[in-house]
């Protein structure tokens, strides 16, 4: 399995504590990049700017990804564009929220 996929799999274990759904199924992760020296950059967003869980989720992402074997430094690039919308959620997340 590539390092990118391993990081992606690890992010399924970072749960949004308000919604009880992992950030991958919520569609918060826009991209995962792996540099040659195995540093990892995660481009992601949150459901709303000023989310109270801001720091907790970011720290959770950094910690969980840093636990993946071979990963060097973890960089989180938090972006607000494109804005998150419900269409980015997986069917599983939609079902859990009773949406769609």
């Amino acid at each position: 399995m590539s390092l990118e996929k391993k990081v992606g799999a690890a992010l399924f274990e970072v749960i949004d504590p308000e919604l009880g759904i992992n950030i991958m199924d919520l569609g918060l992760v826009y991209g995962i990049g792996v540099y040659e020296d195995h540093d990892v950059i995660i481009r992601m967003t949150l459901t709303t700017p000023g989310c109270p869980m801001h720091d907790s989720i970011i720290n959770g992402v950094k910690y969980r990804v840093s636990q993946v074997a071979e990963v060097g430094e973890v960089i989180v690039d938090l972006v607000w564009e494109p804005q998150w919308n419900p269409g980015k959620m997986s069917d599983k997340a939609k079902e859990m929220l009773g949406f769609g």
Partner: peptide
């Protein structure tokens, strides 16, 4: 619950299973 969760569990997210706010 948010305040207490942040105080007690915010550093543990991603490291271990933490309760949801609910």
């Amino acid at each position: 619950p948010f305040l207490w969760w942040t105080h007690k569990y915010s550093e543990r997210i991603g490291k271990e299973k933490v309760p949801t706010l609910k």
